[in-house]
Computed example of a mutant assay.
Amino acid sequence: MRVVIASCSVDYSGRLDAHLPRATRLIMVKADGSVLVHSDGGSYKPLNWMSPPARLAEVDPDEEDRETGVVARWEVSAARTDDRLVIRLFEVLSDTAVELGADPGLTKDGVEAHLQELLAERVEVLGAGWRLVRREYPTPLGPVDLLVRDESGAAVAVEVKRVGGIDGVEQLTRYVDMLDRDPLLTPVRGLYAAQQIRPQARVLAEDRGIRCVVLDYDAMRGMDDPSSRLF
């Protein structure tokens, strides 16, 4: 993990164009290739970012940049698209690199862990003829909750949440990308399963070709009594 605090401007080009004028910001460069630019307020979300896989190149500023006070220029390129992030550094206040090592992963709460267990036992709720390959299937970025095969035998990576947000979509996107590199699994699709999926997360997931499934926890536990329902 590299953490840089600097006066910088940021330009993003790709599916949309965005510009952040010069200001003091926090830049995070992670070992998985992601680059995130944060401000000191607003929310926990970055102002702009590049998801992995990506390549960061530190290049010398051109004459035009030097005239405006730029001391360094970072160019971050996505591996599979034309998306590009250009960060111009005017003053570096802090630059620290720390090796964090392997992360043990998130400890799920009781409901989320039980959802994963139930879905592994009842994977057919995702589709007729679907079968479980393995729970906690390992990837270089950590284990994906479930790896399953659909009725045609195609591999599907499943991330299970109690409440599905954008962070979970980003997490699943990284898992799918890593698993898709395995010649024994490719092509790999993603499926986001949760009791509740936030609207923004659903939009992002569907934009990335990830199917969303809302899980009925009580029904999966066998506690849903159809005779007690009006409809």
Rank of each mutant, 00 (worst) to 15 (best):
residue 6 A to C: 12
residue 7 S to V: 07
residue 12 Y to T: 01
residue 13 S to Y: 08
residue 15 R to E: 13
residue 17 D to H: 12
residue 18 A to I: 00
residue 20 L to A: 04
residue 21 P to Q: 10
residue 29 V to H: 14
residue 30 K to M: 11
residue 32 D to K: 03
residue 32 D to H: 07
residue 32 D to R: 08
residue 33 G to C: 07
residue 35 V to N: 02
residue 36 L to I: 00
residue 39 S to P: 01
residue 40 D to A: 14
residue 43 S to M: 05
residue 45 K to R: 14
residue 46 P to R: 10
residue 47 L to W: 04
residue 48 N to I: 10
residue 48 N to G: 05
residue 48 N to D: 12
residue 52 P to A: 15
residue 55 R to F: 09
residue 56 L to E: 06
residue 62 D to R: 03
residue 64 E to N: 10
residue 66 R to L: 11
residue 69 G to T: 07
residue 72 A to G: 10
residue 75 E to S: 02
residue 78 A to F: 02
residue 82 D to F: 07
residue 82 D to S: 12
residue 85 L to P: 09
residue 87 I to M: 07
residue 89 L to F: 15
residue 91 E to F: 10
residue 93 L to Q: 15
residue 101 G to W: 10
residue 104 P to F: 09
residue 104 P to G: 08
residue 107 T to P: 00
residue 107 T to V: 12
residue 107 T to I: 11
residue 113 A to Q: 13
residue 115 L to H: 09
residue 119 L to H: 03
residue 119 L to S: 02
residue 120 A to P: 08
residue 121 E to V: 05
residue 121 E to D: 15
residue 122 R to M: 10
residue 123 V to S: 08
residue 124 E to K: 04
residue 125 V to Y: 09
residue 126 L to D: 02
residue 134 R to Y: 00
residue 136 E to H: 11
residue 137 Y to Q: 06
residue 138 P to K: 07
residue 140 P to E: 10
residue 147 L to V: 06
residue 152 S to Y: 08
residue 152 S to P: 01
residue 152 S to E: 15
residue 154 A to V: 02
residue 154 A to W: 04
residue 156 V to P: 06
residue 162 R to T: 12
residue 162 R to P: 00
residue 164 G to E: 04
residue 168 G to K: 10
residue 170 E to Y: 14
residue 176 V to P: 02
residue 176 V to M: 08
residue 188 V to E: 05
residue 188 V to Q: 08
residue 189 R to V: 00
residue 190 G to L: 03
residue 192 Y to I: 04
residue 192 Y to G: 02
residue 195 Q to F: 00
residue 200 Q to P: 00
residue 202 R to N: 00
residue 203 V to Y: 07
residue 203 V to K: 13
residue 205 A to K: 06
residue 208 R to L: 14
residue 211 R to N: 01
residue 212 C to T: 15
residue 213 V to W: 06
residue 216 D to P: 08
residue 224 D to E: 09
residue 226 P to L: 12
residue 228 S to M: 08
residue 229 R to D: 06
